[in-house]
Design a protein around this nucleic acid. Structure first.
Lengths: 197, 197
DNA sequence: AGAAGCATGTAATGAGTTACATGATTTG
DNA sequence: CAAATCATGTAACTCATTACATGCTTCT
């Protein structure tokens, strides 16, 4: 049901076609919140319309249909937001990968973690630049809506990305402590991993 | 394919039955990394055995089968860990809910955020207590394995939970700025939201 | 002996992915 | 007019959830 509410949420922000909603998905929800492909979006929009939670308000060129949320849809979404389930579903391939690193030897694991930390840092830099450029409505949007879509997402990134970078660096430090200092040199992995940072 | 590798990862840590692996899932991966139900675990274990990536090493009472990872399985897992995809799948019903809060009015959204922050804080307290009690191998396990399973997961929680709590509090502050101080009183929502914290 | 929890599965349904298919519009 | 991109969809398949089913073992 989550996809359904993700779409209702996007439609609550503003009306749009399947194509536009798919792009919105990619830009905002996809990274941290929910992933969906275009054909799934189109199918769910049809169902939403069939159930009276959204309606086609405009038909444009080459079959383009613009959907808007209905009052019933708004109320349905509201109830979903106010009644969270006890055990929400979480699936994160990033995190899964990181949790399973113990299956690699320390040197390899260290490499994966370092690459991860660097990629998170790149994301953070890009987000920071975006926010400072004013293209995301961190300043602008909050003037008329403190809960604006991009605003919440950007704030989330600005809080979570440093934390996950720091975790990766902490994990690297754990490895280094063990392989360089802790129990003394025991394999060939001792040299080379140290002056890297 | 992620479930497959999640199971291979757990098996790389130690051999276990479907029942045990299901419980391990619930304890470690389920919260942040990947979610799966018992019947899915059993089915995937069968497939893993059929593909030669795991094997039944023991058959116990009431049909209990203990699986162990094979060399082929270990190598398959290793390749998966070393070759991350460009766009890993992320699905997080928590975060989705939080991103869509703009669809509620500020007062309601504030309530949801406050409840979320409190629940994250409870999780953090529980995790902190667990780590300090020494039941998770943050101290113990890292002596023989700095990448130990519970160790990485616990560290992740200790880094990410404060960040998501802080984000929720930041979002609450944004709402309060707007509804109490910012543009001055404009609707009936102005009073009552303030002395609540 | 009965209840609680251990342990494994099957069947039907729903959600999500991959591959394929089609045609309109805009840009060069 | 050709290429790129807009825009929507179908079909087949795999992954995941819900509900059902079964029997063993341990504890009281």
């Amino acid at each position: 049901m989550s996809l359904r509410y993700a779409l209702l949420g996007l439609l609550a922000d503003e009306a749009g076609s399947g194509y536009e909603l798919t792009k919105k998905f990619e830009q905002s929800l996809d990274r941290y919140a929910w992933h969906a492909k275009h054909n799934q979006v189109y199918q769910e929009l049809n169902r939403l319309a069939a159930d009276g939670l959204a309606e086609v308000v405009e038909e444009g060129a080459r079959g383009r249909k613009t959907y808007a949320i209905t009052e019933a849809g708004r109320e349905d979404l509201r109830q979903w937001l106010l009644n969270p389930p006890r055990t929400p579903v979480v699936r994160n391939e990033f995190v899964l990968r990181l949790f399973l690193l113990f299956a690699l030897d320390p040197k390899e694991a260290r490499g994966v973690l370092a690459e991860y930390a660097a990629s998170v840092q790149r994301d953070l830099d890009a987000l920071t630049a975006l926010v400072e450029s004013g293209d995301v409505d961190l300043k602008d949007g909050m003037l008329h809506d403190p809960l604006a879509f991009g605003h919440l997402a950007a704030g989330f990134g600005l809080h979570m990305l440093p934390a996950s970078r720091d975790w990766a660096q902490w994990a690297i430090a754990q490895i280094d402590e063990r392989t360089d200092a802790g129990e003394g040199p025991e394999s060939g992995a001792g040299a080379g991993g140290q002056g890297d940072e």
